[in-house]
Amino acid sequence: MRGTSRDRILARVRRALADVPAHERPQDHPVPRDYLRTHGARTPAESADLLAENLADYRAVVHRVAATGLPALLTELLGRRGARRVAVPAGLPAEWLAQAPVEQVPDSAGLTARELDAVDSVVTGCALAIAETGTVVLDAGPDQGRRLITLVPDHHVCVVRTADQIVDSVPQALGRLDPARPLTWISGPSATSDIELDRVEGVHGPRALDVILVHDGRPRDEQAVTGDSAPARGL
């Protein structure tokens, strides 16, 4: 065989592109980026409302609570579900579950999927949430843990800080995320449209998703500004 397949494919690509001028650089082929950075102007409170609305539209259960009420709400949600064993990321604030009468299963490199299969619920924070699409994004940060802990248990409770974790749009979200980290975008519980293109919630991932929007207790319109604070990446 002449050369490697790598060489062969690259040579085919170059032959195929014989009509592209040799001096053309990628940026010489224009990309119009006149699409919107966000779809509408919103106050932070409006963004939080839209996030809640869109999450609920895809059957996540949304709760709003002041920071001081979070431990009680978590206790209530886990209790309602009958959860006895709860997976907990290493960096989850200890006070969140301090009141909950559950066995905490700490995330660690040794915790296997099979062990997680016998865990009832998992409680995490998130990297950010996207209002326009009703999405929470996990980046395996300390309060979120490894990817499998939010996948194998059947119930996921995800806490979003409204003060600084909500962005409006997909472009804003990508600008704040680090591609070097493993990312999981979650928009509602697991679903399928595979039977007659009819949407059914609940296949392999958690079938129940509770999202808690935590505000800091001040009046809503005084909450910190969210959104496009980080510069966009790329060209």
């Binding site: 996207i130 490894r146 990817r147 493993p182 449209s193």
Partner: peptide, 21 residues
């Protein structure tokens, strides 16, 4: 594709990550 604002799950990974995946 599915006429959704966003599909339920999107995974992004870059190479391998220690102890995760």
């Amino acid at each position: 594709a599915t006429a959704e604002r966003m599909n339920p799950y999107t995974s992004m990974w870059t190479g391998t990550t220690d102890d995760d995946g």
